[in-house]
Design a protein around this nucleic acid. Structure first.
Lengths: 227, 227
DNA sequence: TTGAACCCCAATGCATGCAACATTCTGCCC
DNA sequence: GGGCAGAATGTTGCATGCATTGGGGTTCAA
């Protein structure tokens, strides 16, 4: 890290604000439902209101916050209904990515990356390290849509993944079917490796419906109206 | 119009900039590929750089323009590859909306609105008024996803519709299967009225694949690398 | 105690200022 | 004549100023 400073890493204030604010939203450092004034955030980030404002606008576009005139930036809570919406879109999009990948096949590098994600999930589950499992799972899903090459679909899925991030973490410790997810993932990769688009599509669709339903149900039954 | 001025129509500069810029992009008043400096746009719109900048950031999020540091706002051209991406996403999402609608049924008002759109398209086709046809078609598709109630899916579809708007208009006069589209739309509404989700899904998916493929092929064969 | 109206003031929306940076042009040297 | 270096120019990125506005607190009446 110290020697690879070929890049001046010139990062704009807006980019920094974007990065930090997103992080704070995802980690609940800015809790869902909380409101934050521009000056407050600007002071927090050590910059003026302008870049904070621009970053907030971008985050609003990504569905993480809401800008209320004169009331500041509100971190959007995610309701059960929101989760249904999000998983409906993901369920429609991700299987198409799986299908595409199965059709065109994996490069060696991609195959290895997927294998690493799979093994990371399996290892994490054995060690009962659910945070690690969640990270690998997110990486896997992100890699899937990204590899399929539809940039618009990728951005949409990433944005939706961000939106459900908190809900996923929250339910993580109550989920008793992570091993099913792992098996699903492996079956998906097998289908892709076999070059069977229909199977990959169906398999991943089944997975998305199953896992999404599970999380949504958990949120619902625990009476968490929003996260 | 003159008597319904109960609303003071308080509109922020950002909203106005957003509206006007979008309009100019969709109508090619700002042609695809063209670059525009902040000051230029600000002068054009009669406001300062700030609201223009914020509107541009929002439009970038919607995939209509690209903000190049120090080079201004670039109106994004849409390549054939872009069209494939867009239609892939629309093909994944819209049929789900159709399915949802068939499952829950239409309200009377919705049914009437759809019927109006259908008739507008049929009338337009008979009168060979293709612009009118395109407008009704867009309205129909928008209404479809909107009525299904998934706000995220709706926003995504609207944004993608904006992105292909120019390409659709450009190919409009070469398309020889508008009557097929009309029939498709009517069959979809029939399926929804019958309350047959599978049929509605399949029907609309077929339509999207057909129409999307047609437009993309037209763009491609006419050697239009991008629009 | 509840509701409504009013007023105050903080936060925003927008304008503008300023310095940095990238691009481009110019001039010099080879 | 061509190429490179350095300066000039112009635009942005960000900071700040200022008038506006709407939220919320307070007061008064029912």
């Amino acid at each position: 890290m110290s020697l690879m400073s070929t890049e001046p890493a010139r990062v704009s204030q807006v980019q920094r604000a974007l990065h930090e604010l997103r992080e704070m939203v995802l980690t609940c450092a800015l809790p869902p439902g909380s409101m934050h004034l521009e000056v407050e955030l600007a002071k927090m980030l050590g910059m003026s209101r302008t870049p904070v404002r621009e970053a907030a606008i971008i985050l609003e576009g990504r569905g993480l916050v809401e800008l209320r005139p004169r009331r500041g930036m509100r971190v959007l809570p995610v309701s059960v209904e929101d989760m249904r919406e999000i998983y409906e879109v993901l369920t429609a999009l991700e299987p198409v990515a799986a299908e595409t990948l199965a059709r065109r096949g994996l490069t060696e590098a991609e195959d290895e990356s997927f294998e690493e994600d799979l093994q990371a999930m399996e290892r994490a589950l054995q060690a009962d390290d659910r945070e690690a499992w969640a990270m690998a799972d997110e990486a896997f899903h992100a890699r899937l849509v990204e590899a399929a090459g539809n940039r618009r679909a990728t951005e949409i899925c990433m944005s939706l993944a961000d939106q459900v991030h908190r809900a996923r973490l929250m339910t993580l410790h109550f989920r008793d079917t992570l091993h099913v997810s792992n098996a699903d993932h492996r079956m998906l990769i097998e289908a892709i490796r076999e070059g069977d688009p229909e199977k990959a599509y169906a398999q991943h669709r089944r997975h998305r419906i199953g896992a999404g339903g599970k999380i949504t149900a958990l949120i619902e039954e625990r009476g968490l109206r929003s996260v």
